[in-house]
Write a protein that binds this DNA or RNA. Structure first.
Lengths: 143, 143
DNA sequence: GTACCACCTCAAGTTGACTTGAGGTCAAGG
DNA sequence: CCTTGACCTCAAGTCAACTTGAGGTGGTAC
């Protein structure tokens, strides 16, 4: 496959593919003239990268997880750690989703005054306010 | 509360608080001299913002949801839409979490060759490859 | 009453993740 | 053969979300 086909089938622009290759996130198997040639499995790798991004991981973190070389990482501890990180994110997002869903139908004057909304918010942000800061929620993105 | 206390209790740097105020995401109730004064409920609002960010929403989107004015938005349709968006993100993250968890213990030579891993990945990226592109996964962030 | 220091403003810098543009190259079709 | 267009490189630009810095201000403790 040439870069245009990968772009078409993955939805990832060619410029981004070149950028990812430069970063070591993906690699082409060779060149035909000066054109890059990719294997079909590049598509799975791209899906994995997109997934990692949706999970809020930086490209560098993703590289760590999927391995800069060919195939996913061997560092089982890192993978487990990232899974746990992701799990706590998921809990927060679930609470937020429920908060949003409720807010969409709740008739309280201000959502902040609705006990249900506040409970969900508290659940999501548990531990964030007062002692410890919101850091837990945001440091992943900040770093 | 002055800005330093808000910063301390929320974990959000003062510079960020000023930045958020400028963007209309938060507001101070007044000034004492030239110093901003915040109400205690600013902490909840900040938790909500942090939550929105963890969910991958941009500050502008968050402003739309929580309302640029004082309290959350009245646009129930928008809230429901965002909740659905969030829900599909959550499904992907769950699949990825499970994929990571499994990868951490799986002994297949390459995770891409492990059927279980591929199934989870496929689940997460369903529809992303081949027809439609990965766009669904990433456009939220790109916008 | 004055010195200090935390807070202020406003402009510019930073980082991550890309995109855009200018100028060059080469495989394929005519 | 030779033109053409898709691909190449490399440098610079962009955007969101902040951070940093220089220079100013004013409650508060001494």
């Amino acid at each position: 496959m040439d870069i245009a086909e990968v772009a078409k089938r993955s939805g990832v622009p060619a410029s981004t593919l070149r950028f990812y290759e430069e970063k070591g996130l993906i690699k082409s198997v060779g060149r035909l003239g000066l054109r890059r040639v990719f294997e079909v499995n590049i598509l799975e790798r791209l899906a994995l990268i997109a997934l990692g991004q949706a999970a809020g991981f930086s490209l560098d973190e993703i590289a760590q997880m999927v391995g800069v070389n060919g195939n996913p990482n061997i560092d089982r501890e890192l993978l487990a750690k990232k899974a746990d990180e992701l799990d706590s994110t998921i809990q927060k997002l679930i609470a937020m989703r429920d908060g949003l869903r409720h807010a969409a139908v709740c008739s309280a004057p201000s959502h902040m005054e609705c006990p249900k909304f506040r409970r969900l918010l508290g659940l999501a942000a548990s531990g964030a306010i007062k002692s410890g800061g919101l850091d837990q929620l945001t440091k992943r993105r900040r770093s």
